[in-house]
Structure formats: C-alpha cells, structure tokens
Simulated assay, not measured.
Amino acid sequence: MEKVMKEAEKILSALENTLSKFDTTWINTVPFEGSWTAGQLAEHVILANSGFLQVINGPITETDRPADMMVAQIKNDLLNFNIKFRSPDEIYPQVAVYKQQELLARLKEIRNGISIAASSLDLTKTCSVFKLPVYGFLTRLEAIYFAIYHTQRHEHQLEKMYRALDTN
C-alpha cells in the first residue's frame, strides 16, 4: 500500500504544481480551439476525484477476484493519449470564472483524503456504491489507481495548455 500512496502523492501533487505555474489570467483562458480552460480541467479533476473519494469511503463488499485485476487495463486506457474520451455529464465542468487558489486548495484536500484512505482502509474490498461503465465495480485499490491515472492524463493535458499559453 506504500507504493499506491507514493504514486498518488506524486501524481496528484504534479497536477497541483502544474496548475500553480499558470498566470492567474490564464486560468480562464482557452489555450487552443476545442480545449477547456485550465480552470475547467482542474474542476473536472476535482469533481471526478472527489467522487472517487466518496466511492472509496462508501459501502463495500467482499472481493472475489484479485484486488488489482483492473489496474493494468485502467492504466492502459487512461494513459493512451491518442484516445479522446467524453466526460460524463456529472463531472463535466461548467463554463465559469475559476479562482486558481480555490482550485489548488480543493485539489490538496482531495489528495489528502486519498492519502488517508490509502493508508487506513482495506484496499482489497470492492466499492459497491458505483459501477463504472466498462470496468464495473472497482476495488478500493483500483478506484485509487483510477484517480491516479485519470489525474495523470489531465496533468499531461494541463502541461500542453500551459505551453500553448506560455508561447502566445
């Protein structure tokens, strides 16, 4: 469990660090056609990861398969940057004026919550409150890895946004 905690800390912190690099005027600027703003991207990650944190801390059942069975597939899917996913409506960010410091505070709060969950809960249990399309019910371990890889995917996108805005 030490490995997943370190990986979560590293990736979730990386997103915060990248968002911190943005000039405050860039947070709500569309960097290129077809893109969200950095604020919208951060809000999307907040909505998704806070949802996963609720799932991880929610009702559980016993697991009848290896607790990490879906991790490789989740990683392969989410870190394939050639595939474009459509965000589910419930985690689709609104067009709004986002404040960088508020986003960073919320991201840090979620990172701390995931760290606490990873260090204190039985990660082999299956989360029974939410069934993901394609993957089904995830174990707590798989749900944490989903948050890690989802965040890593968006940190990659946030870096592209930063480079686009930094060169204009």
Rank of each mutant, 00 (worst) to 15 (best):
A42S: 08
A42M: 01
A42D: 01
A42N: 03
E43K: 14
E43S: 10
H44T: 01
H44Q: 02
V45Y: 06
I46P: 07
L47M: 15
A48W: 05
N49E: 09
S50P: 01
S50Y: 08
G51W: 00
F52I: 07
F52Q: 05
F52K: 02
F52R: 03
F52T: 04
L53P: 04
Q54N: 15
Q54D: 15
V55M: 10
V55H: 03
N57L: 14
N57Q: 15
N57A: 08
G58R: 10
G58V: 04
P59K: 14
I60W: 03
I60A: 09
I60C: 08
T61E: 11
E62F: 11
T63A: 08
T63W: 01
T63Y: 05
D64M: 07
P66T: 08
P66W: 06
A67D: 06
A67N: 05
A67P: 14
D68S: 12
D68G: 15
M69D: 11
M69H: 12
M69A: 14
M69Y: 13
V71A: 06
A72T: 09
A72R: 10
A72S: 11
A72N: 11
Q73A: 12
Q73P: 03
I74L: 12
K75W: 01
N76S: 15
D77N: 12
L79E: 10
N80S: 06
F81E: 05
I83R: 13
K84H: 13
K84E: 12
F85H: 09
F85G: 05
F85P: 07
R86K: 15
R86S: 13
R86C: 00
S87G: 06
P88S: 04
P88I: 05
P88C: 00
P88Y: 02
D89C: 00
I91K: 05
I91V: 14
I91E: 03
I91F: 09
Y92N: 14
P93V: 02
Q94E: 14
V95H: 12
V95T: 13
V95Q: 13
V95K: 15
A96G: 00
V97N: 10
Y98G: 01
K99W: 03
Q101Y: 01
E102I: 08
L103W: 11
L104F: 05
L104T: 01
A105G: 01
A105C: 00
L107F: 02
L107R: 02
